Each structure stands twice: as C-alpha cells, then as structure tokens.
Amino acid sequence: MKRFLPAVLLPLTLLLAACSGTSSADDSGGGGGSVDGKGSLTLNVGDQKGGSEAVLRAAGELDDLPYKIKWSTFTSGPPMLEAVNAKAVDVGSVGNTPPVFAAGADSKITIVAATHGSSRGEAILVREDSPLTRTTDLKGKSVAVAQGSSAHYQLIASLKEAGLTLDDIEVTLLQPADALAAFTSGKVDAWAVWDPYTSQVLQAGQGRVLTDGEGVVNGLNFQVAAPSALADKAKADAIGDYVERLRRAQDWVFDHPEEWAKVWAKETGLPYEVALDAVKLTHGTRVPVALDQLAVDSEQVIADTFADLKLIPRRFDIADYVDDRFNKELPPSTSPARSYGKASSR
C-alpha cells in the first residue's frame, strides 16, 4: 500500500489544485471540447478533469440543452478565474479561496452560486506513528501546506482555535506531490491538505487526522461568472440554466454515490475505494445554498485573513463580487451538509 500512494497522487497534482491560491506557469488551461445543444448561443464553461462536465453527463443533465457548451479544462482555480477575468470563460466552478485571490487582484469576476458541504476532508494529517494528538501539539513543529489554498486557511483557522498562530509553527510551503514526499519521509511533522488527498492517505494507512475543518471553515464552493456574460441577457439566462442543472446533478450525486464514484474514478485515475470515500466524506455532501449575507460574511473573514497576512495585495469587500440573482428558493448557506455516515477510511 505504501508504494501505490505516490504513484496515484502525482497525477492528481494536475487535477485537483482547485483549492490552490497559486499556480505554476503551465497552469494556463487548455484542452476541453464542446457539447452541442439547441440554438446558436454558446456558453464558455471552465472546468477541471472529473468536474462539472463529468457530473452533468453522469446525471443526464447535458441532455436537451437549449444552448451549446464549449468546455475549457484547467488544472486549478486561479488560472480559470484569470480566464474569467479575460472574458475567455463565462462561468466556472472553484473552491472558497481562489475568488478571494482573484478579487484581491481586482479581477473582473462575480460569484453567482454556492454549495455548502462537509469540511471533514479539509484536514491536518500526521503519520500513524506520530506522537502528536491535538492541535496544540503542533507548536514548534513543521507543517506542509500549499500556499493560498483552502488548506492554508484551514490551517490558520485551526491554529487560531487552539490559541496558536503561523508564527508558532514552521510552515513549509509545498504543492501536494512534494508535500506527500516530505510527509511520508518524515521531513515535516504534519500536512494540511484537502480531499481526495485526505482519503488517499487514510486508505493507504500512511496517516491519521489530527484535526479537520468541520466547524472551522465555511465549507463553501462557488460558481464564478464573468460580469460581461452576466450583462448579456441571453448568456445570463444560459448561466442561470447551467447553475440549475448543476444543482440537480449535485442532488443526483447524493442519491447515487457508488455510481458517481465509479465515473469519478475513471475520469481521474483514482482507485474506486478512494473515490467513494472522498464522495462520502466531502464531494457528495454538498447542498446547493443561497448566496446570502452569512456566505458573504464568512468569505469576508477569509479575505481579511489573507490581507492581514499580506498574501493578497489589498483589502476589499467581497460583497462587491457577489450577484444573488440565481438564489431562487434555496436554503441558507449554513444549511447542514448531507451525511452518508462515516466513510470507510475513518
């Protein structure tokens, strides 16, 4: 088992950096394809492998489209939002941190939809034989984390809850592949990361959870659109329809976790058992929710935190980057995440 984990995880560094607030030079997007629907309108959608297109197709939500979709595949959220800013992408899905970095850079982006899910997959991991048993034990220890990622914020928030700050630990800024090597070799004492990496480490028996993000981070994911697309009535209508299809697809995932795990495993190269654990731990728990004041306030906390740390260049009001026209009759952003019970790796 200890041999299979690095081989599986390495390609995922190109797949699941959506939570990352930084990107390498080759994270510029590319690939993709198109889905032909009725009508002449084409909606340009940003995606990641095993992401929106895969789940929409699996749920049958790409049938009878009243418009066409041109997909562009990106390796992480930040370059996708760069494409949104450049009007090359009309809408795309990201985690809770990339919009903060994009808005901090004064990019032209607008958050238009949200889901709320479990944050149990956002975890600080330690090796099985580690003497560390609680967050306060991290004082003076080294922790690997991807800079500007949702895991970075979860680390900060978890430390704060334990009465610590980043100054109390040795932060080692590493992307997942390098972090895994440092973690398993003992070069760092802990690793702050997100699912499915969390599920992979637990499945391989190479670590355990010291603490996770449940009750610490907001558990939100977003659809982010280009303001220019929202200003075009036809495109805005298409974005509204697209968002609604994604909401129905998310409901389908909850009702069909095993079926979606098979699709996701095939799309991403994850072992089925890891994919199923990740679905039950995080990805299948998401509930479509309203972009309400509570969501805005929780994102403002993230924005202010990174501004205070000078990881983004300015302070700003996240409300200036939110459009709630597609809220409909959705539950509040703090609605409980769906639960399958404990995933098998727990």
Rank of each mutant, 00 (worst) to 15 (best):
A86P: 11
A86F: 03
K87T: 14
K87C: 13
V89T: 15
V89C: 12
V91R: 03
V91Y: 01
G92W: 00
G92C: 09
V94N: 00
N96V: 12
N96K: 12
T97N: 11
P98F: 02
V100F: 03
F101D: 01
F101Q: 04
A102W: 04
A103T: 11
A103C: 06
G104V: 07
G104I: 07
A105Y: 06
S107N: 11
I109S: 00
I109T: 10
I111M: 02
I111H: 00
V112R: 00
A114S: 02
A114N: 00
T115Q: 00
T115N: 03
G117K: 03
S118K: 13
S119P: 03
S119V: 11
S119E: 12
R120Q: 04
G121A: 10
G121N: 12
E122K: 15
I124L: 15
L125A: 11
L125G: 07
R127N: 10
E128T: 13
E128V: 14
S130P: 02
S130E: 03
P131Q: 08
P131W: 02
P131N: 09
L132I: 04
L132F: 05
R134V: 10
R134S: 11
T135H: 04
D137L: 09
D137E: 07
L138N: 02
K139A: 12
K139F: 04
K139E: 10
G140Y: 08
K141P: 04
K141G: 05
V143N: 05
A144D: 04
A144L: 08
